[in-house]
Design a protein around this nucleic acid. Structure first.
Lengths: 347, 347
DNA sequence: GTGAAAGCGCTAACAC
DNA sequence: GTGTTAGCGCTTTCAC
């Protein structure tokens, strides 16, 4: 079953391939009569132009690459979904490049990012968006940065909620500090003075910023930030369970805990239950991200919405503008929002 | 900044493009000396072969398309993650085609599937996998089927947990009936006799099969299946909340409920709490899918694992074989597994 | 309004 | 071992 090409259509229609191409792309007027003849043949043979050939000559593919760490982390599908919608509407189709997921082997995460980066570049994608992974690092190694910078010269690169110091790549972010402030202030206004801050990784920008926001707010209100109530290393449910256990082992206990993300918050909640505490009766908990589970748990989780969907949507818009060579400002910052639900209560 | 091509490399190395191509693909022996010279230039210019051109001439792209309804539904990232891992290892990169997500506009879901189907085909993907959407329909419209069949003639198509009656497309599935049997039997063995079956959509194959499995099992044990305890139309948390409300309004109440998926189960659990019931004290609940949240909730959800990850992994394997023109059996069936956690207890 | 022909960048016979 | 050259299937000047 030979695949039919513009030549086949052209021949049978007694025109040149140029004309076929013209009706295909509506790129120049064609006499209605010939146009109809061609259209008919196209339908007859179910002709589908080869996108590879087209892209090769047009030097644009309508393909985008999106590199992220783990689609299994519910935060990412949310931004992806916003991104998808917008990108789709603009006629793009995208490669999903997951650098960790499944094998859970973080070890070579950055190596995999590099592989994808060059694979995408070879595939001539029109644009690349990165989130998580190296762009989350507070101090990425030099090569990690320069590599992206190099790619960025050939194709638009957009960072979501990340940065690569010194590159001035385009990025769309959430105001992380503000999010943390919102959460902390909420707790304080409920009368809490003994607040723990748990989760995250000290080498990640988001953790640093969120922690800074929380600490600053507590200090503004004259609250003391206790070292032993600031626990790190983990973004998972399990780590959350561990954090609350550590907290409960101490002589003095906090009455509220601000978690670096919702997964940790869920873990903390689980751990609290197992320890016989009631939430929010004995312990108020606020998360961060507002993943779907946040509203599915019982009690429903009070959290900070990162506007994941909007983040993705905005990213797609900006990337599109970048690809269209429109002027775009380097950094777009979205405002997070506190979502008060059921895990927080007056002290 | 002109992009460098094999010609540039060839010229500077004083060889022909053929030789460059040879070292690029290791497709024929090249004298070490010339090889080194070429390799050096490749590095010097950071030369990256244009995958479009390569694919155009080789007639293979290393690209796969995967069409699914909603990446925001936690079941899908799980299978995607298994798929990703395996596909990546085999050198594929894939387009994620989400047909619902974000806008939540189910209305034109099938239309979007069609669009993606032809977009992928034009992009010359090496294979396509479909899950959810039309392949979940018990009785898909004729065009929905024939369209896929048509595409299937030009490129391998694999269905995950779905089918298109009369097409004999390759597919990898879970034994849905068995899963439902496992769940139901578990409940019965705990002493429950009043079991409700809630969630799903009557026009979907999985719902039909799961319901059939549950009903059959109940009958085997001589239990009565009450019409008013079989509630449909919904796979969401909200629908679950609605189902339990309906159940509790009735004069006689079930002591256990088998849910069509975990989201519904979570909703049922929420609703039960709001109504002042304790789980599993007053009501045992079992879900279906084993999404990550199933083990994160409190109490942790007893559910049937669909082996989502394995489903994805297997799909990638089989698709690879299909692409490599190896012999593969049409249907692969995976066994589900009951995961007993905390939402089920003796009557 | 339409055609001829030169690319786009790579691979793969085939010849030497 | 290496070079020549004809594709792969489409777009796009430039003529007419």
């Amino acid at each position: 079953m030979k695949t039919v090409t513009v030549y086949d259509i052209a021949k049978e229609a007694n025109v040149s391939v140029a004309t076929v191409s013209r009706v295909l792309n509506n790129t120049a007027p064609v006499k209605k009569e010939t146009r109809d003849r061609i259209t008919e043949l196209i339908n007859k043979y179910q002709f589908q132009p080869n996108a590879l050939a087209r892209s090769l000559s047009k030097k644009e593919t309508g393909m985008i690459g999106i590199i992220l760490p783990d689609i299994t982390n519910p935060f990412f599908p949310e931004v992806l979904s916003g991104f998808d919608r917008e990108a789709r509407d603009n006629g793009y189709t995208y490669f999903l490049c997951d650098t960790v997921s499944a094998n859970g082997d973080m070890a070579d995460q950055y190596g995999r990012e590099s592989q994808y980066l060059s694979a995408l570049s070879e595939k001539q994608v029109d644009g690349i968006v990165m989130l998580g992974g190296r762009v989350d690092l507070a101090k990425p190694r030099e090569e990690l940065t320069s590599e992206v910078l190099e790619i960025g010269k050939r194709v638009p690169v957009l960072l979501i909620n990340g940065d690569l110091p010194g590159t001035s790549l385009h990025r769309v972010c959430i105001d992380e500090r503000l999010g943390a402030e919102l959460a902390t202030r909420h707790l304080i206004e409920l009368g809490h003075r003994d607040i723990a801050i748990v989760g995250g990784y000290p080498h990640m920008r988001n953790t640093i910023q969120r922690t800074a926001g929380a600490v600053k707010t507590m200090q503004q209100y004259g609250l003391k930030v206790r070292k032993e109530w600031v626990l790190g290393d983990g973004f998972s449910v399990e780590s959350g369970v561990g954090f609350i256990r550590q907290l409960l082992e101490q002589r003095e206990r906090p009455t509220a805990v601000f978690c670096m993300n919702d997964l940790v918050a869920i873990g903390v909640m689980k751990g609290a239950y197992k320890a016989g505490l009631s939430v929010p009766g004995d312990l108020s908990i606020v998360g961060y991200d507002d993943i779907p589970f946040a509203s599915a748990s019982t009690p429903e989780l009070t959290t900070v919405s990162l506007k994941a969907n909007e983040l993705g949507r905005t990213a797609a818009q900006i990337l599109h503008q970048l690809i269209s060579k429109e002027k775009v400002r380097k950094t777009s910052i979205l405002q997070p929002e506190l979502v008060v639900r059921e895990t927080t209560a007056p002290r």
